[in-house]
Amino acid sequence: MNAQTVAAPARETVIEVRGLINRFGTQTVHENLDLDVYRGEIIGIVGGSGTGKSVLLRTIIGLVRPIAGEVRVFGENLLSLSDERRSQVERRFGVLFQSGALFSSLTVAENIALPLIEHAGLPRMDATRLAGVKLALAGLPVDAGRKYPSELSGGMIKRAALARALALDPEILFLDEPTAGLDPISAAAFDSLIVTLRNALGLTVFLVTHDLDTLYSTCDRVAVLSQKRVLAAAPIDEVARTDDPWVQAYFNGPRGRAATFAAHKGKD
């Protein structure tokens, strides 16, 4: 589908957020928030706890209805579409939830085969075979497919959930804290997996994270959520120079300096 349009200008906008306002009770989470995400990039969303990173993600995928403002994904406002049309758009993105959200009553392979059977209408046999390939893409052995989510380790759950998010070959991948709770080695492996998949499948990746190493090793651009809006959205070195107390504390704190050092050492 997108192969014909590959020749289009490099900065095609796939997600467009304009004047977004989110409020829960009297607490305002987002106030006139604007954000653009371009095709093929990995954008990292950072911000302190409670700045509404996950709420932003959930608003974009249409799980939260904003008070005001507009969210366009592939140029369509999800909330104003008919159910059928919305489902068609939703098939073009995959979501990896923070704790995986694998269906605990299905095996891993069945979890991945489910969207293939329901949406692509494949027979169970073919869906299961394809599920095996998705598992392999996410770096899991095939016999993991026969296990139930409760039998997997944290890192394997993330990979299995990633395989399910990739089931329908989405164009945009939403990741909510993909490396949270993983050991540094698994986290690094997951980071490089995301970059590999982006390069191979031409994905656009929307990445909510706290992990500075992930930011440095994967993201093309970083958007900082602070003071209820996007404070900056630019390549990471540029963002790190932004004159804002939170940004400075984040990137130039002890952990930030260590990650910067590691990233620059890696490049040399």
Partner: peptide, 23 residues
């Protein structure tokens, strides 16, 4: 072939090679 396509073929080929033998 375009680089993106080659990367896709390589990734999928590798995935099948490495992991799908036990099916």
């Amino acid at each position: 072939l375009p680089p993106a396509r080659r990367a896709l073929l390589k990734t999928v080929g590798d995935a099948i090679d490495t992991y799908c033998k036990g099916v």
